[in-house]
Design a protein around this nucleic acid. Sequence first.
DNA 1: TTTTGAGTTGTTCGA
DNA 2: GTCGAACAACTCAAA
Length: 487
Amino acid sequence: MVRPHPKPVIVWFRDDLRLADQPALASALAHDGPVLCVYILDEVSPGLRPLGGASRWWLHHSLEQLASSLSKIGGRLDVLTGASDQILTALAKASGADKVVWTRRYGAAEIALDSKIKTLLKQQDVTAESFKGQLLFEPWELQTKAGGPFKVFTPFWRAALALGDGSAPLKAPKKMNALPWDKSYGKSLKLADLKLLPTKPDWARGLRQTWQVGEAGAIARLSDFLKNGLAHYAEERDRADRDSTSRLSPHLRFGEISPKQILWAARHAGDAGSIAQRNIDKFIAEIGWREFSYHLLYHFPDLRQANFQPRFDHFPWAKSTKKNLDLWHKGQTGYPVIDAGMRELWQTGTMHNRVRMIVASFMIKHLMIDWRRGEEWFWDTLCDADPASNAASWQWVAGSGADAAPYFRIFNPIIQGEKFDPDGIYVKRFVPELSRLGAKWIHRPWEAPDNILAAAGITLGKTYPAPIVDHAAARERALAAFASLSQ
DNA sequence: TTTTGAGTTGTTCGA
DNA sequence: GTCGAACAACTCAAA
């Protein structure tokens, strides 16, 4: 019996740049036909937010890694640029593919684009199938007893955990059969043609030193964290001076690893009983916050633009912000922990989680700058800039978000610094001009006696800025502004 | 429908 | 120095 020659399948990679636990890829390989793997840099379809600089840098290297992993198992990655709908429909036609598969996304513009493409493909008799791969729980799978979306984290996460997801992540395929690229498919580009990397100036040196981009790097990072970080996660995760967080977020952002792989590994790391359950729960809850953010984004699509709580529409944000915003960007506020955090961000494309809250609170509450300006800066500079987590977290700090911080929670940058970086190790790593100042004054140099400052080689206002706002006065001003909202 | 308890991450003040 | 209360009132989720 002669079987008909199987038709090609197209795997459309997006925010899922991995081979393991990749249901879309797995389904394509189960199909028997040759596989065409593509990535499309789409900067023209309506509503898509352009990637920030750090994300573009990451994407370049992540695609490079994916292409290399695919080629090792007989596959290939083709990179294209343009309108996703036009490219995919044309590609399906030219290659004779009868199926296109991808992993779901959850932003409004992305959903609109994907469903349009599904319709277009169907019209030319091509099956389009989407898969869950970026989340543990689809946003529509979870709802309150009243039938609506959750707006508070704890009940959301309780409901999610009750739903459970015990299945093991999929193994990476070992072999595949790539469809050769034909000229009739159009132009497959070189990665460099996407122009994702910075040229002049090349600001990515610190990023290169900090990260091992790609699926192999993600897996290495996870196993390092399970070995060295997880056992003390609950107590140490807030310490800016320790390496206790997982640092998996950019890998997750680009789907180099799936939340399911992380959850599975964290749970099984506790099998031997050497890791206290509270550490595992605490870590898994962080994955839960990512899920919650996507839940919010799906149900409130303009999360990035609009206050989740509309009463914040009347908030008296500062009118002229250029000067202070610039000092905040550059890490020149005169508050050491703020400046260290902002410089860590600029140099490495990441920032310690605790410090993110401190710098965000400072920008919003001390400088009274609209949270959207902070969201934009993080979007441009963070390697892990995530459409859901970034917006949800900024709103959370502002108090305008779901389950948000109460108005009176105004982080004191001095106390926070002393609590979570007691010896000033973190500050000194990123603010070298304070490197000779002792722990007693490291978070409040303006209070240090003159002789101590002189001995440390510090002249306030010259070698390091004096505080750009007075903490107590800024706090009072913010409290008054937030109180004005309630009336 | 009404009621009840709860809600990631803090700071300051006064006893 | 330590500790508990105040800081507003609201909204959510579930019974």
